[in-house]
Amino acid sequence: MEVIQIIILIFGLFALSRVFTNLSHKNLEKIEAIFWMLFWTVVIFIAIFPETISSAAKILGVKRGVDLAIYFSIVVLSYLIFRLYAQISNIEKNITKIIRTVAIKK
């Protein structure tokens, strides 16, 4: 096992444990928790058996397994950023509503 595999494995386990603690503190919805559990389980699995993504890459027409992992990560990250953007602008709009109500009532 290479050092990088061990690092990813340890980080994956740490992240997975964070998902469980957040779930028990009810900071996460069940559906979100399931998504993140699956995500980190896949990461851990790939860290232990890197050959598996190589064969998956071949099926999908990507040359190297690592490339597939990077492409996939970029897609996931972009989606998450988009979701954060939407959530933040929603929060911003709500803050404005509160500030407006306070300004008018006083």
Binding site: I95, T96, I99, R100, V102, A103, I104, K106
Partner: peptide
Amino acid sequence: VLKHIINRGQGA
């Protein structure tokens, strides 16, 4: 005077 207790921008 109406007071925005936090800056929200000119549109707001």
